[in-house]
Design a protein around this nucleic acid. Structure first.
Lengths: 230, 230
DNA sequence: CACTGTGAAGAAATTCACAGCT
DNA sequence: AGCTGTGAATTTCTTCACAGTG
């Protein structure tokens, strides 16, 4: 019996959720969504199987959000979906801009997964005059010089960089300057940003190289399920 | 035979390199490549700045590969490039197949980063008869039923899944059956594979959701540089 | 001296194991 | 009984700090 000074039950803003847990919440969300029309509750064991992790991890992760399960029963799918969505900020709408309308940018613009949950692509941006004015995936392409006005008027807080590596830093500078606070960077370059801007990097080639390592070594890979980004 | 059960000193790529280190080696590789035509040596401090990590981590990471630096001087760029490439298995050629020739599959097929280092896209595969026979990014699209023959003849060990989520598991089954040992999964689904197959998952929407979390919370993000996948 | 390489300390993440609720 | 929630143990990763070397 140790009346530890607990983190406090303040849903919405308070509790500190470990980074590793944050990175898994979207996985749980998807798994829950997939079974939401078939199952009313899930056990940590079941959710673990769906998400490709182990049950103890699921329970620990979810415990950071609060006590949303019922002992002897499990977690109510709909309720948990809502709680995780809320924790991830998906109950509100996030206007997103994609900078760089090349192959990748277009693929991203057409990717349903983005618009699916909370993220709404509101602008495509490019520096190429030939592309500006054309319509891709239902969105007119805007010139990058109009970024500040765009960010302001559409309330864009999150942007995706899908440009060549050479211009990624310049784009990041412009985005930060325009007021964008979070950047998802697909360009194969490390970019520097002010401390109040968050960057996440996804490098397609890096993922292959990591696979290559385990493949050449002996075919052994870390963990039982798949390694997701985090 | 070997007195030590696992983690022995295998010939070719010796000591046990931690997963976290493996995930960073491609970043160092890219950074080194970027400066290779301008600088002959780099210090751990310099490389750290280029890669967006701290110097102690660079030294520790590189120490797992061997003692490739020179005290008082730093690391010779070319030599380190070679050593990391070798560790990642990039000195050999990896034939890669992309399954799913939708927007994302096409973007990946056109992505230079893949072919840039060791990975050579040798086949595009789809189930849609309308796509089979067409040419995308210089590669004819093959029907998925021909996968076993293709894997066999081209010596494909690594494949990329860029299909809708619904068919990802079926594709994974076929890939494993055909003899593919490593899979990079872009489909938003957790897939099950035999234990001798490695899966890495990249989920574009998940990355945005993680950003969303930190954005809504208070704009604070983990670490100083960008969080890469790993 | 300048910088690497590395034990050791510290922090974070994972897993165990079981008390406690329904 | 069944399953969650969580302290505690364990493992992994990061950072420190400095001995050692070109």
């Amino acid at each position: 019996m140790s009346p530890r000074p607990s983190a406090g039950d303040r849903p919405g803003s308070g509790r500190r959720v470990p980074d590793a847990t944050v990175a898994r919440l979207p996985i749980y969300l998807r798994a829950l969504f997939d079974v939401s029309d078939r199952e009313r509750t899930v056990s940590s064991e079941r959710l673990a199987a769906l998400a490709g992790v182990n049950a103890a991890k699921v329970r620990k992760d979810l415990s950071y959000l609060g006590s949303y399960g019922t002992r002897g029963v499990g977690y109510e799918v709909e309720y948990l979906l809502f709680q995780i969505s809320r924790e991830l900020g998906l109950t509100r709408d996030w206007p997103v801009a994609i900078v760089g309308v090349g192959n990748l940018g277009q693929a991203l613009a057409n990717y349903d997964g983005f618009s699916a949950r909370g993220f709404r692509i509101v602008a495509l941006v490019d520096a190429d005059p030939a592309k500006v004015g054309t319509v891709v995936a239902g969105h007119p392409v805007t010139h990058i010089d109009d970024l500040p006005a765009l960010v302001e008027s559409a309330g864009i807080a999150i942007a995706v960089i899908a440009t060549p590596a050479e211009v990624a830093q310049d784009v990041a500078d412009r985005l930060a300057e325009a007021g964008v606070r979070s950047i998802l960077n697909f360009a194969p370059a490390v970019i520097a940003v002010p401390p109040d801007v968050t960057v996440r990097k996804v490098d397609l080639a890096v993922e292959l190289q990591i696979l290559g390592f385990y493949q050449q070594r002996d075919g052994t890979h870390p963990g039982v399920g798949q390694k997701a980004s985090g």
